[in-house]
Write a protein that binds this DNA or RNA. Structure first.
Lengths: 161, 161
DNA sequence: GCAAAGCATGACGTTAACGTTAGGGTTAGC
DNA sequence: GCTAACCCTAACGTTAACGTCATGCTTTGC
């Protein structure tokens, strides 16, 4: 990590193996991107300001252009927000982890990576994933308990009938 | 419903069938109540201001006194907040529903309630409970999906090993 | 009966996550 | 090449859910 202080969380973009302009390569402006992802333009700019996303392009004049992966990333942010109740700071951490994981997979597949290094990389990646998994699992079991409680109450009400 | 406009959400307190001073009837001051429920004194006052709770007693001088049920109610609020991500407004609705359900159960057990009325009451209560259940269930299945996705990713990482 | 601890009621402050102008540049279609 | 639609940055506004005083009354233990 040798970038500047305000380095944003960047998605580890694949180096575009082969250019495929047919595969819906159309980039969206912020308006369309906002409409499709269901958040406001302001939210998109705000996420960017926090380093959560970076539109994969800009026009020569400086207008943001969003790719499909960008939109997927926004969807992920919303998911982490509404489902897990994470705040944007925590989400930044999660995304950083996931980006790191992608990096790891890239490094893993490089010829010049030694076998020992590969094992090491995988271990690190696995640890990252399992960290998030633990968080989610905790939430799930809590909700399950909540639901069980609710169901038993419903059963009691029902038994009166 | 004939109470004043700012009527708070009140728990439908049982009429204290028999006074039992031995059964930990000690009421807590706001400081102790806050400590035990894990929220701040300010939060307790704020919840009251929003009509979510009403301390079951006040000293002659006006100090709040919280009962065990009050604390349970606070715990419920926190649960709805952190687990389901509801805001205090939505929580007010849920609590109102639950209080209504308690009322219904009381009415149900009254001799002077007709059988037809009882069925009607039960139906209403059941509907209220199932409303919340649906919300929670939706959340659960969403989280389950999230978790499944995570697990498949983990499996993929693992398969590299 | 008195000091220390506890509490009440305002009222202003704070933080996260955006919303909303204001005052301009940029781009796309004709 | 021009206009309508789109977008930029900067900056102030908003809302929920409290935090934090300030000022003064209450309660409790000795």
């Amino acid at each position: 990590m040798s970038t500047s202080a305000a380095a944003p969380v960047r998605e580890a973009g694949l180096p575009a193996a082969a250019e495929r302009p047919d595969d819906r390569e159309r980039l969206l402006g912020i308006g369309a991107a906002a409409a499709r992802s269901g958040v406001s333009e302001r939210a998109l700019r705000y996420y960017q300001q926090l380093g959560l996303i970076t539109p994969s392009g800009r026009t020569p004049g400086g207008l943001r252009r969003y790719s499909q992966e960008d939109l997927a990333r926004v969807a992920r942010i919303r998911e982490l927000q509404t489902l897990l109740g994470l705040n944007l700071d925590e989400i930044a951490t999660v995304l950083r982890n996931e980006d790191r994981l992608a990096q790891i997979k890239l490094a893993y597949h490089q010829e010049r990576t030694s076998d020992a290094d590969r094992r090491e990389l995988l271990r690190e990646g696995l640890a990252l994933q399992q960290g998030l998994r633990a968080t989610v699992e905790a939430k799930r079991s809590a909700i399950e308990g909540f639901l069980a409680d609710l169901d038993s109450r419903i059963a009691r009400t029902r038994s009166l009938l």
